[in-house]
Design a protein around this nucleic acid. Structure first.
Lengths: 216, 216
DNA sequence: TAGATTGTTAATCGATTAACAATC
DNA sequence: TAGATTGTTAATCGATTAACAATC
């Protein structure tokens, strides 16, 4: 399914694959059978050569003169990302953002699914979020092991995030998606992606045109 | 406040500034007066030379042999990012995620503040979200102009996102933070950041170790 | 066939890091 | 002073893009 990997494929490449996948899924829904790197690039704002190169790391998926067969490419990218199997996910922090993600999740029919929700607060434990009972933190380890959960999502406040990460790792997760506004530290074999809503918003401000009276 | 800019500063640099700012704010709260690029790099997982270089694009903020004065550097980065002035923000889409962001917003005491919330659905119009009345879409343009809103946040479903972006731009916003799982297209003078929760999560799956029986 | 489009190499571009003189 | 640490240049590394033979 993948070329023998002498050298690991860069994270920049991996992060683009789900974007391709999403567009391809849209095309499939529209009944489109075939797509060129040029068309994909135009829609996604990317250089066609880059798209071809990204895909070529994993095999020869296209046909010269024709392009890529949409259904086949979807299948291949799913395999590469391991999205061809169900991936059970735990969410920690049943606040507004956590709840939003859990509910959002229900509408997505991809293979990453939140199957357990935890919260520190006794007030929240037992509450139902989208068909899942919020569990107390003390059940975290046992549930993660029973349900074979390998990915954790952190939506707790910043001061609690590192401790939660430690617990998730101790329980056996291999990858963490962190929404808390803090950089968490983990052993090198654990993969962490930071989804930093506030810093993204703050960097936007830089690009605002200054009102006249502000410029000197 | 900024060097004469012959060439624009790269987006990679700009996106790191809010991360520095956040850590510095934390240090200030802890009562720390001075910090070195080495210490910042260690905490944020970055090369100290990179941090020094990033800051040096905008001026000489440090002192040789000493490091950076925390309070002063905070002030400078805020100026660079235009966070020294209040930036009014509009949010479109009062669903779970939008509501979460609006509420989150209230707890943050930075200078980007959501001052208007819009939703397409008549069912949601008039509802109170964290002290703000949800307004119907037909009031979008007038409110944005009255309140001098220059940044928009999109938290509507994918199929509605492009249309909402068009309306925001037509009303006069200069920058958009898009949470809808779709790439939106805008004129070159409009800045768009995509916060792609699902694709980030999907790329995580790639790094999961394969169970033995899956490997061939 | 002629036109289209891939996979891939080479060229370019940009970002990161090492190194060090300047200096607190 | 001696040690620490900046600002900055040069070296390195990695990512993007252009170009084109292969081929459907």
């Amino acid at each position: 399914m993948q070329k023998e990997r002498e050298q690991p494929i860069s994270d920049t490449v991996i992060k683009r694959l789900p974007i391709y996948l999403r567009y391809l899924t849209y095309l499939e829904r529209m009944g489109v059978r075939t797509v060129s790197s040029y068309q994909m690039g135009k829609e996604l704002g990317q250089n066609p050569a880059q798209i071809r190169k990204d895909l070529a790391y994993f095999g020869e998926f296209g046909r010269k003169g024709i392009g890529y067969e949409v259904g086949y490419l979807i299948k291949k990218i799913r395999q590469i990302l391991h999205l061809d199997q169900l991936i059970p996910v735990a969410l920690v922090g049943a606040g507004h953002l956590g709840t939003a993600l859990a509910r959002y999740n229900a509408f997505q029919q991809d293979n990453m699914r939140i199957v357990a929700i935890f919260d520190h607060s006794p007030l929240k434990a037992g509450r139902d979020v989208d068909g899942l009972k919020v569990q107390p933190m003390k059940e975290l380890k046992s549930t993660i092991q029973e349900k074979d959960i390998r990915v954790g999502i952190i939506t707790v406040p910043d001061y609690a995030a590192q401790e939660v990460a430690d617990q998730l790792i101790e329980a056996g997760v291999e990858a963490i998606m962190n929404f808390a506004p803090i950089i968490i530290h983990t052993p090198p074999n654990i993969r962490v992606h930071h989804a930093d809503l506030t810093t993204e918003l703050h960097s936007l401000a830089y690009y605002l045109r200054q009102p006249e009276y502000m410029v000197n």
